[in-house]
């Protein structure tokens, strides 16, 4: 636990020394459309747990995620993922990425989509079955993706990411528009995957999902406002909910330096 005032510094309480960092971000700056979206941030994401990336819309979550996955042109800094620079060819098999808008072929069925991506990844046919099962799409497996509801389509997109047993799964707002029961099931799935050794980074702007994460990264205006397990964060900010903690961090002058 850092002894300095927690509100003035990004907290780093939760980074256990025993587990190697899945993601290491140093001085990352990204400019998009002429605007400095990430002004040089540092972050460590622990391996083998579910890390929630929280922050309002426009806080830079998606940009950070894109930099971690290696699809973002960056201006400066470094991003190490599973010990390799983000975007390295070697990582393409180990890292899976689910974009906010579902990226599946709208004119193919769910199963056809999964079979194709499994073919590209060289994943066994059984992994298609399992991905359908895990995302609760058995009823829709033979349905054309374009005719699915928004939530079903995001799940189809998520299912693709589960093919080929990736070591790091990065999900951009995967639970938007899902009914509560399904959302609970998906979070259970995330933890199952983490229990089997995978690392997950899940972005959300729904504060009540924060409690389901092992680690939290709070983002605000392109900066990491805090990074700690939920309980530690509440303790540091002396608040009772993540929402209040976020408000406390937002109210304090975060960038003292």
């Amino acid at each position: 636990m850092p002894s300095t005032d927690p509100a003035t510094q990004p907290a780093r309480a939760g980074i256990a020394e025993s587990t190697p960092a899945a993601v290491q971000v140093r001085g990352l700056s990204v400019r998009r459309g002429g605007r400095l979206v990430l002004p040089g941030i540092d972050l460590d994401v622990r391996g083998g747990v579910v890390t929630g990336l929280l922050g309002p819309s426009g806080s830079g979550k998606t940009t950070l995620i894109r930099a971690i996955v290696g699809v973002q042109v960056i201006e400066g800094g470094t991003v190490q993922v599973l010990g390799e620079p983000a975007g390295s060819p070697g990582l393409r098999r180990r890292v899976a990425y689910v974009t906010q808008t579902p990226s599946v072929y709208g004119d193919l069925t769910v199963t056809e989509n999964l079979r194709y991506f499994a073919g590209v990844l060289g994943a066994p046919p059984a992994s298609v079955e399992r991905a359908v099962e895990v995302t609760g799409l058995r009823q829709q497996a033979k349905q054309i993706a374009g005719s699915l509801s928004g939530g079903e389509c995001s799940r189809a997109s998520l299912a693709v990411a589960l093919l080929g047993d990736p070591e790091l799964i990065v999900l951009d707002e995967p639970t938007v528009g899902l009914d509560p029961a399904l959302r609970r099931d998906l979070w259970r799935t995330f933890h199952d995957l983490a229990a089997r050794g995978a690392s997950l980074i899940v972005s959300t702007h729904v504060m009540d999902e924060a409690d389901r994460c092992d680690e939290l990264v709070l983002m605000r205006e392109g900066r990491v406002a805090a990074s700690a397990p939920p309980a530690a964060l509440l303790e540091q900010t002396r608040t009772a909910s993540i929402e209040d903690a976020f408000l406390a961090l937002a109210a304090s002058p975060t960038e003292a330096s």
Partner: peptide
Amino acid sequence: TSGTLERLMSMPL
């Protein structure tokens, strides 16, 4: 535009 190209480009293809 559907993001499938970006997805493919992040895969070992």
